[in-house]
Amino acid sequence: MSFASDRVTRTLPALAAGPAEEPFTILGWSEDMPRDTVWNDHSHPWHELLWNERGASTAMVGPRVWTVTPVLGLWMPAGTLHSGSATAGTRCRATFFGFGTMAPLSPVPVGVVITPLLRLLLDRLADTGLAEDSRALTEAMVLDVLTPSGRELLVQMPASDLLRPIADAVRGDPGDQRTLADWASHLGVSARTITRAFTAETGTSFARWVAAVRAQHAVALLSRGWRIDAVAEEVGYRSASAFGVAFRRTTGLTPGAFRAP
Protein backbone atom coordinates (compact mmCIF):
# COMPACT_ATOMS: atom_id res chain seq x y z
CA MET A 1 0.00 0.00 0.00
CA SER A 2 1.35 3.46 -0.91
CA PHE A 3 0.34 7.03 -0.12
CA ALA A 4 0.28 10.04 -2.45
CA SER A 5 -0.74 13.16 -0.48
CA ASP A 6 -4.16 12.15 0.88
CA ARG A 7 -4.69 9.27 -1.54
CA VAL A 8 -4.11 5.61 -0.74
CA THR A 9 -3.16 3.12 -3.47
CA ARG A 10 -3.92 -0.52 -2.77
CA THR A 11 -2.24 -3.25 -4.78
CA LEU A 12 -4.06 -6.54 -5.30
CA PRO A 13 -3.09 -9.57 -7.43
CA ALA A 14 -4.62 -10.61 -10.74
CA LEU A 15 -6.06 -14.09 -10.16
CA ALA A 16 -7.80 -16.38 -12.62
CA ALA A 17 -11.37 -17.59 -12.08
CA GLY A 18 -11.55 -20.78 -10.05
CA PRO A 19 -12.54 -22.31 -6.71
CA ALA A 20 -11.20 -20.80 -3.51
CA GLU A 21 -8.88 -22.73 -1.23
CA GLU A 22 -11.64 -22.69 1.39
CA PRO A 23 -14.97 -23.19 -0.44
CA PHE A 24 -17.80 -20.76 0.31
CA THR A 25 -21.12 -19.73 -1.17
CA ILE A 26 -21.41 -16.06 -0.22
CA LEU A 27 -18.99 -13.89 1.77
CA GLY A 28 -19.23 -10.19 2.52
CA TRP A 29 -16.68 -7.40 2.94
CA SER A 30 -17.15 -3.83 4.10
CA GLU A 31 -14.85 -0.95 4.92
CA ASP A 32 -15.05 2.75 5.63
CA MET A 33 -12.59 4.70 3.49
CA PRO A 34 -10.90 7.37 5.63
CA ARG A 35 -8.96 8.62 2.57
CA ASP A 36 -9.41 8.73 -1.16
CA THR A 37 -8.50 5.21 -2.23
CA VAL A 38 -7.41 3.70 -5.55
CA TRP A 39 -7.16 0.00 -6.43
CA ASN A 40 -4.81 -1.20 -9.15
CA ASP A 41 -5.85 -3.51 -12.00
CA HIS A 42 -6.66 -6.82 -10.31
CA SER A 43 -9.02 -9.77 -10.55
CA HIS A 44 -10.61 -12.29 -8.19
CA PRO A 45 -11.13 -16.05 -8.51
CA TRP A 46 -14.74 -15.54 -7.38
CA HIS A 47 -17.66 -13.45 -8.66
CA GLU A 48 -18.19 -10.11 -6.94
CA LEU A 49 -21.10 -7.74 -6.38
CA LEU A 50 -19.78 -4.24 -5.73
CA TRP A 51 -22.05 -1.81 -3.88
CA ASN A 52 -21.83 0.86 -1.21
CA GLU A 53 -23.60 1.41 2.03
CA ARG A 54 -22.69 5.09 1.80
CA GLY A 55 -21.11 7.24 -0.87
CA ALA A 56 -20.09 6.62 -4.46
CA SER A 57 -17.13 4.78 -5.95
CA THR A 58 -15.96 3.79 -9.41
CA ALA A 59 -15.01 0.53 -11.09
CA MET A 60 -13.11 0.43 -14.37
CA VAL A 61 -12.71 -2.34 -16.93
CA GLY A 62 -10.58 -1.12 -19.82
CA PRO A 63 -12.20 2.07 -21.18
CA ARG A 64 -15.50 1.49 -19.34
CA VAL A 65 -16.13 3.39 -16.10
CA TRP A 66 -19.05 2.55 -13.80
CA THR A 67 -20.25 4.51 -10.78
CA VAL A 68 -21.25 2.29 -7.86
CA THR A 69 -23.71 3.57 -5.24
CA PRO A 70 -26.04 2.30 -2.50
CA VAL A 71 -28.75 2.10 -5.19
CA LEU A 72 -26.85 0.71 -8.17
CA GLY A 73 -24.30 -2.04 -7.69
CA LEU A 74 -22.07 -3.77 -10.23
CA TRP A 75 -21.66 -7.48 -10.94
CA MET A 76 -18.01 -8.30 -11.65
CA PRO A 77 -17.48 -11.83 -13.07
CA ALA A 78 -14.66 -13.95 -11.69
CA GLY A 79 -11.32 -13.37 -13.38
CA THR A 80 -12.28 -9.96 -14.83
CA LEU A 81 -9.40 -7.51 -14.66
CA HIS A 82 -10.64 -4.26 -13.12
CA SER A 83 -9.49 -1.28 -11.10
CA GLY A 84 -11.39 1.08 -8.84
CA SER A 85 -11.49 4.18 -6.70
CA ALA A 86 -13.48 5.55 -3.77
CA THR A 87 -13.57 8.96 -2.17
CA ALA A 88 -12.95 9.54 1.52
CA GLY A 89 -16.07 8.89 3.59
CA THR A 90 -17.39 6.12 1.36
CA ARG A 91 -18.46 2.91 3.05
CA CYS A 92 -17.67 0.27 0.45
CA ARG A 93 -19.26 -3.13 0.47
CA ALA A 94 -18.67 -6.17 -1.71
CA THR A 95 -20.35 -9.54 -1.77
CA PHE A 96 -18.28 -12.47 -3.05
CA PHE A 97 -19.87 -15.52 -4.66
CA GLY A 98 -17.81 -18.71 -4.67
CA PHE A 99 -16.85 -19.84 -8.16
CA GLY A 100 -18.95 -22.84 -9.20
CA THR A 101 -21.62 -22.31 -6.52
CA MET A 102 -23.96 -20.52 -8.94
CA ALA A 103 -24.51 -19.87 -12.62
CA PRO A 104 -22.81 -16.53 -13.39
CA LEU A 105 -25.27 -13.66 -13.36
CA SER A 106 -23.56 -12.39 -16.51
CA PRO A 107 -20.31 -13.21 -18.32
CA VAL A 108 -19.52 -9.48 -18.40
CA PRO A 109 -19.87 -6.69 -15.82
CA VAL A 110 -23.48 -5.59 -15.48
CA GLY A 111 -25.48 -3.26 -13.26
CA VAL A 112 -27.54 -4.62 -10.36
CA VAL A 113 -30.21 -2.64 -8.54
CA ILE A 114 -29.68 -2.96 -4.79
CA THR A 115 -33.31 -3.39 -3.82
CA PRO A 116 -34.41 -3.12 -0.18
CA LEU A 117 -34.95 -6.90 -0.10
CA LEU A 118 -31.52 -7.69 -1.54
CA ARG A 119 -29.86 -5.30 0.89
CA LEU A 120 -31.76 -6.82 3.82
CA LEU A 121 -30.58 -10.30 2.84
CA LEU A 122 -26.97 -9.19 2.38
CA ASP A 123 -27.07 -7.42 5.74
CA ARG A 124 -28.37 -10.62 7.33
CA LEU A 125 -25.45 -12.59 5.89
CA ALA A 126 -23.08 -10.09 7.52
CA ASP A 127 -24.22 -11.41 10.92
CA THR A 128 -21.39 -13.70 12.01
CA GLY A 129 -23.70 -15.35 14.56
CA LEU A 130 -26.21 -16.50 11.95
CA ALA A 131 -27.05 -20.20 12.35
CA GLU A 132 -25.85 -22.50 9.56
CA ASP A 133 -29.34 -23.44 8.34
CA SER A 134 -30.46 -19.80 8.40
CA ARG A 135 -27.36 -18.80 6.45
CA ALA A 136 -28.01 -21.46 3.82
CA LEU A 137 -31.63 -20.29 3.44
CA THR A 138 -30.58 -16.64 3.19
CA GLU A 139 -27.91 -17.47 0.62
CA ALA A 140 -30.48 -19.30 -1.48
CA MET A 141 -32.79 -16.26 -1.32
CA VAL A 142 -29.96 -13.94 -2.41
CA LEU A 143 -29.23 -16.15 -5.41
CA ASP A 144 -32.95 -16.15 -6.23
CA VAL A 145 -33.47 -12.36 -6.14
CA LEU A 146 -30.12 -11.33 -7.63
CA THR A 147 -30.80 -10.20 -11.20
CA PRO A 148 -29.00 -8.01 -13.75
CA SER A 149 -30.49 -4.62 -14.53
CA GLY A 150 -30.54 -2.40 -17.59
CA ARG A 151 -29.83 0.49 -15.26
CA GLU A 152 -26.19 1.37 -14.78
CA LEU A 153 -24.05 4.47 -14.49
CA LEU A 154 -21.60 3.67 -17.27
CA VAL A 155 -19.30 5.85 -19.36
CA GLN A 156 -17.23 4.44 -22.20
CA MET A 157 -14.04 6.49 -22.40
CA PRO A 158 -12.80 7.50 -25.87
CA ALA A 159 -9.09 7.02 -26.46
CA SER A 160 -8.23 8.74 -29.75
CA ASP A 161 -6.13 11.87 -29.93
CA LEU A 162 -9.12 13.63 -31.50
CA LEU A 163 -11.54 12.97 -28.63
CA ARG A 164 -9.15 12.93 -25.69
CA PRO A 165 -9.20 16.75 -25.22
CA ILE A 166 -13.01 16.67 -25.11
CA ALA A 167 -13.10 13.76 -22.68
CA ASP A 168 -10.52 15.33 -20.37
CA ALA A 169 -12.30 18.69 -20.38
CA VAL A 170 -15.78 17.32 -19.70
CA ARG A 171 -14.65 14.88 -17.01
CA GLY A 172 -12.61 17.66 -15.39
CA ASP A 173 -15.56 20.05 -15.49
CA PRO A 174 -18.92 18.35 -16.19
CA GLY A 175 -20.48 21.83 -16.29
CA ASP A 176 -18.50 22.67 -19.44
CA GLN A 177 -21.00 24.30 -21.79
CA ARG A 178 -19.15 23.87 -25.06
CA THR A 179 -21.32 22.36 -27.77
CA LEU A 180 -20.44 19.95 -30.55
CA ALA A 181 -20.04 22.94 -32.87
CA ASP A 182 -17.80 24.70 -30.35
CA TRP A 183 -15.53 21.67 -30.11
CA ALA A 184 -15.43 21.24 -33.89
CA SER A 185 -14.28 24.84 -34.26
CA HIS A 186 -11.75 24.48 -31.44
CA LEU A 187 -10.25 21.28 -32.86
CA GLY A 188 -10.39 22.41 -36.49
CA VAL A 189 -12.56 19.55 -37.72
CA SER A 190 -16.17 19.17 -38.75
CA ALA A 191 -18.96 18.37 -36.31
CA ARG A 192 -19.65 15.27 -38.40
CA THR A 193 -16.09 14.04 -37.81
CA ILE A 194 -16.51 14.32 -34.03
CA THR A 195 -19.93 12.68 -34.19
CA ARG A 196 -18.59 9.71 -36.13
CA ALA A 197 -15.65 9.35 -33.76
CA PHE A 198 -17.89 9.38 -30.67
CA THR A 199 -20.18 6.74 -32.17
CA ALA A 200 -17.24 4.54 -33.13
CA GLU A 201 -15.37 4.83 -29.82
CA THR A 202 -18.17 5.07 -27.25
CA GLY A 203 -21.23 3.65 -28.97
CA THR A 204 -23.20 6.81 -28.31
CA SER A 205 -23.51 10.44 -29.35
CA PHE A 206 -21.56 13.39 -28.01
CA ALA A 207 -24.65 14.73 -26.21
CA ARG A 208 -25.50 11.42 -24.57
CA TRP A 209 -21.89 10.86 -23.57
CA VAL A 210 -21.76 14.28 -21.88
CA ALA A 211 -25.06 13.53 -20.12
CA ALA A 212 -23.64 10.24 -18.80
CA VAL A 213 -20.50 11.96 -17.47
CA ARG A 214 -22.67 14.59 -15.82
CA ALA A 215 -24.87 11.90 -14.26
CA GLN A 216 -21.84 10.11 -12.79
CA HIS A 217 -20.50 13.34 -11.31
CA ALA A 218 -23.96 14.26 -10.02
CA VAL A 219 -24.33 10.95 -8.21
CA ALA A 220 -21.01 11.49 -6.43
CA LEU A 221 -22.21 14.89 -5.22
CA LEU A 222 -25.69 13.67 -4.28
CA SER A 223 -24.16 10.87 -2.22
CA ARG A 224 -22.30 13.51 -0.22
CA GLY A 225 -25.56 15.27 0.63
CA TRP A 226 -25.49 18.10 -1.91
CA ARG A 227 -28.85 19.73 -2.63
CA ILE A 228 -30.32 18.81 -6.00
CA ASP A 229 -30.40 22.42 -7.22
CA ALA A 230 -26.74 22.88 -6.30
CA VAL A 231 -25.82 19.67 -8.13
CA ALA A 232 -27.78 20.78 -11.19
CA GLU A 233 -25.80 24.02 -11.36
CA GLU A 234 -22.48 22.24 -10.77
CA VAL A 235 -22.97 19.83 -13.66
CA GLY A 236 -24.15 22.43 -16.14
CA TYR A 237 -27.96 22.56 -16.07
CA ARG A 238 -29.90 25.81 -15.87
CA SER A 239 -32.52 24.43 -13.48
CA ALA A 240 -33.17 21.51 -11.18
CA SER A 241 -36.08 20.44 -13.41
CA ALA A 242 -33.90 20.33 -16.53
CA PHE A 243 -31.32 18.36 -14.59
CA GLY A 244 -33.98 15.94 -13.36
CA VAL A 245 -35.26 15.26 -16.87
CA ALA A 246 -31.75 14.64 -18.24
CA PHE A 247 -30.79 12.51 -15.23
CA ARG A 248 -33.87 10.29 -15.52
CA ARG A 249 -33.29 9.89 -19.24
CA THR A 250 -29.74 8.71 -18.57
CA THR A 251 -30.21 6.56 -15.46
CA GLY A 252 -33.89 5.66 -15.35
CA LEU A 253 -34.02 6.98 -11.78
CA THR A 254 -34.60 10.33 -10.13
CA PRO A 255 -31.77 12.35 -8.54
CA GLY A 256 -33.50 11.94 -5.18
CA ALA A 257 -32.89 8.19 -5.29
CA PHE A 258 -29.16 8.85 -4.88
CA ARG A 259 -29.21 11.68 -2.35
CA ALA A 260 -27.69 10.86 1.01
CA PRO A 261 -30.20 11.09 3.89
Rank of each mutant, 00 (worst) to 15 (best):
E48R: 05
L74H: 06
P116L: 07
L162S: 06
A230R: 15
R224D: 14
P13I: 08
V71L: 09
D144P: 00
L180F: 03
D32Q: 10
M102I: 15
W66K: 00
V61D: 04
V112G: 02
F206I: 02
G252F: 05
A215S: 13
I194K: 01
L27A: 15
A218T: 07
E22C: 10
G55Y: 04
G256K: 13
L27W: 10
V210S: 06
Y237M: 09
W209D: 01
G84V: 03
F247R: 04
S57L: 13
R259S: 08
W51P: 02
A218P: 09
D123V: 12
G129F: 12
H217L: 01
T138K: 07
I166D: 01
E152L: 09
R10F: 05
P158D: 00
T25S: 15
L49D: 00
A17Q: 01
G62W: 05
L120Y: 11
L125Y: 03
T202K: 04
L146G: 07
W209H: 06
L221D: 05
W209L: 11
R227F: 03
A88F: 02
P165I: 09
S43Q: 11
D182G: 13
A17L: 00
W39P: 01
D36F: 06
V170R: 04
T11Y: 08
T69I: 01
M33A: 13
G18Q: 04
R192M: 08
L187D: 02
L153K: 05
